[in-house]
């Protein structure tokens, strides 16, 4: 009795504090609160998924994966765990894993009618696109030739830039530590400030690295585009056929459903519309969720197109 009251009180306090942290975008604070919650009760999957979300915001991808796996051990049907897992795996550039996690998340989201289905469908498509990019790169490398060599050079140059930033940063950190030891007597307040500085600096370095990676990717894409245009035999204009595109979001579909009037939409999008208005978007006649049927042939057509044309995701 005593304990259950104490537990409940604790959970209430945690929930309150956590909310405040999230509102203030204090994800470090939120992460700490959830670590404490987990120490208090390691059998609650929600603590793990909530910490995973804070860690996702902090870009601690490996830690997100850890938390999601814990949550899935406790609750194998956790929609949030699969969602965050897919996002973290995508960020770590593991498109195959990201695809299977986000497909699992999508299935669960549709089953419980979660409004996050549209976002998850986006992750599924991004994972597919990344898979296509990886296989395209492999093809270009295998074909050898000038393009392969140039891409390799640009990639290496990009890696060099990133490691230069990293080296500079770790040298700076060494120096900082020496300073800190010197000034230790000057009191705790100063040290605290210093810690804040380090955090800000770390964020700046991270941003710098991401910027370098981004510009390398851009350069490579530009190069590939130039080569594609120079080779009219292989060059095809990048256009997604209209029938593969969802008429509401204008994105290529991944789980199309057909209405009783014959028009197909991405399932997550049309469900979002039906939540607001139970009408057919084209004819304005009554339309409910039960009237929607999966359009399997179109689904296969979209999948096939995506396999050859991963760029279609950003079209």
């Amino acid at each position: 009795m005593w304990w259950s009251v104490w537990d409940r009180l604790n959970i209430l306090i945690f929930a309150r504090l956590w909310c405040r942290c999230f509102q203030a975008s204090d994800f470090i604070g939120a992460e700490r609160f959830y670590t404490r919650a987990i120490i208090h009760d390691a059998t609650n999957p929600a603590y793990f998924t909530n910490r995973a979300l804070s860690r996702l915001k902090l870009s601690l991808w490996e830690a997100v994966i850890d938390d999601c796996q814990h949550a899935l051990d406790l609750l194998p049907t956790s929609l949030k765990a699969y969602t965050y897992l897919g996002q973290a795996q995508l960020a770590l550039d593991r498109p195959n894993e990201a695809l299977s996690s986000s497909q699992q998340a999508y299935k669960l989201a549709i089953a419980v009618r979660s409004p996050s289905a549209a976002t998850i469908a986006g992750t599924v498509l991004q994972a597919k696109k990344r898979k296509w990019e990886v296989s395209e790169d492999r093809r270009i490398m295998e074909e050898g030739g000038l393009l392969g060599k140039l891409v390799k050079m640009l990639t290496e140059e990009g890696e060099k830039e990133v490691s230069a930033v990293e080296t500079q940063w770790s040298l700076g950190k060494e120096e900082g530590r020496v300073h800190k030891e010197h000034r230790h007597e000057e009191g705790g307040e100063w040290n605290k400030n210093r810690e804040g500085d380090t955090q800000a600096l770390e964020a700046a370095v991270w941003e710098e690295i991401e910027a370098r990676k981004h510009s390398t990717r851009e350069r490579i894409n530009l190069l590939k585009d130039v080569f594609a245009r120079a080779d009219p035999a292989k060059y095809k204009p990048r256009i997604v056929p209209d029938h593969l595109i969802d008429n509401i979001t204008f994105c290529i579909m991944h789980d199309p459903v057909i209405t009783k009037h014959g028009q197909s939409y991405e399932r997550a999008t049309i469900l979002e519309h039906l939540r607001r208005s139970k009408t057919d978007p084209l004819t304005r006649e009554p339309l409910t969720e039960e009237d929607l049927r999966p359009n399997l042939a179109l689904r296969v057509a979209c999948e096939e197109f995506m396999r050859e044309n991963g760029w279609a995701v950003d079209y």
């Binding site: 008429n247 519309h273 607001r276 208005s277 009408t279 978007p281």
Partner: peptide
């Protein structure tokens, strides 16, 4: 109008 008037297409 956001009710039944607007259609996302």
């Amino acid at each position: 109008s956001s009710g039944n008037g607007w259609s996302p297409v």
